[in-house]
Amino acid sequence: MTAPDPLTTAWTSAQVEVMHALRDWALGFAELNRGFAAWMRLPASDADALGRIIWAAEAGSPLSPVQLARGIGMTTGATTALVNRLEAAGHVGRSREHPDRRRVTLRPSPEARHRAREFLAVAGTGIAATLQAADPAVLRATTEFLGRMTAAAAG
C-alpha cells in the first residue's frame, strides 16, 4: 500500500480540524516560550533549553548535556555553548552526580526555578487547569495520538 499524497488526498473535516488545532497549539506553545524567554531575558533557544532543564529536574530526571542536545535538536558543541551562557547567567549548574564521574548533570539554579514558577503562576494556570480537568482516558488517547503524529512528522 502506498502512502497518501498529502496535497491531493481528500481530507475529512475532522482531519482538517485536528491539523488546525495542532497548528494552533504549536503556535500557542511557541508564544508561551517567547513569553518565558522575555521573562527570563534570554534568547528563545536558551529559554527553551532552560525550560527543559527545569522541567526534567522537577520530574526527578535531570538532563545531561547530551540529552539536552537531542531534545533541542542542536549539536553537542552548540549545546555546550548554550549551557555555558546559561551557567554564566546563573541559571544552571553542572554537577557530577552519576557513579560514572565523567557524566555531567544539568541542574537549574534556585533563582531560575523561582523565576520560572513566577512566570507559570501567570501564564500556565489555564494549561494546568485544563490538564487537571481532563478525563484520564482522553489524556492517554491524546498522548498516544500525539506520539504517532510526532513520529510521522520526524519521518
Results as ranks from 00 to 15, higher is better:
Thr8Met: 07
Ala21Ile: 02
Ala59Tyr: 08
Gln15Ile: 08
Ala26Glu: 12
Ala49Pro: 01
Glu31Ser: 15
Ser61His: 13
Gln15Pro: 11
Glu31Val: 14
Trp55Pro: 11
Leu42Tyr: 00
Arg23Glu: 09
Gly51Cys: 02
Ala3His: 08
Arg41Gly: 04
Ala56Tyr: 02
Leu22Asp: 07
Ala26Ser: 09
Val16Lys: 10
Leu22Thr: 10
Leu7Cys: 09
Ala10Met: 14
Ser13Thr: 11
Trp25His: 13
Thr9Met: 12
Ala10Tyr: 08
His20Thr: 14
Trp11Thr: 06
Ala37His: 03
Ala59His: 05
Gln15Cys: 08
Trp25Gly: 12
Leu32Ile: 07
Ala47Pro: 03
Asp24Tyr: 12
Ala3Ile: 09
Val16Cys: 08
Ser61Gln: 11
Ile54Gln: 09
Trp39Met: 05
Asn33Arg: 15
Leu42Asn: 03
Ala56Val: 02
His20Lys: 14
Pro4Lys: 08
Thr8Phe: 11
His20Leu: 15
Ser61Leu: 08
Leu42Gly: 00
Glu31Pro: 02
Thr12Arg: 06
Leu7Tyr: 04
Leu32His: 08
His20Glu: 12
Asp46Cys: 14
Ala37Tyr: 07
Ala47Gln: 04
Val18Leu: 14
Ala49Leu: 00
Arg41Val: 08
Met19His: 10
Leu27Phe: 13
Arg23Leu: 14
Leu42Glu: 01
Ala21Arg: 08
Val16Pro: 05
Pro4Glu: 07
Val18Lys: 14
Ala30Cys: 02
Trp55Thr: 13
Met19Glu: 07
Arg34Val: 04
Met40Trp: 07
Gly35Asn: 03
Glu58Ala: 10
Pro62Phe: 09
Leu27Asp: 07
Ala47Asn: 00
Ala26Thr: 03
Phe29Met: 06
His20Tyr: 15
Asp46Thr: 06
Trp55Met: 15
Pro43Lys: 05
Val18Tyr: 13
Leu42Pro: 02
Ser45Gly: 05
Val18Phe: 15
Glu17Ile: 10
Trp11Tyr: 03
Gly51Met: 02
Thr8Tyr: 09
Ala38His: 12
Ala37Pro: 01
Arg41Tyr: 10
Ser13Cys: 03
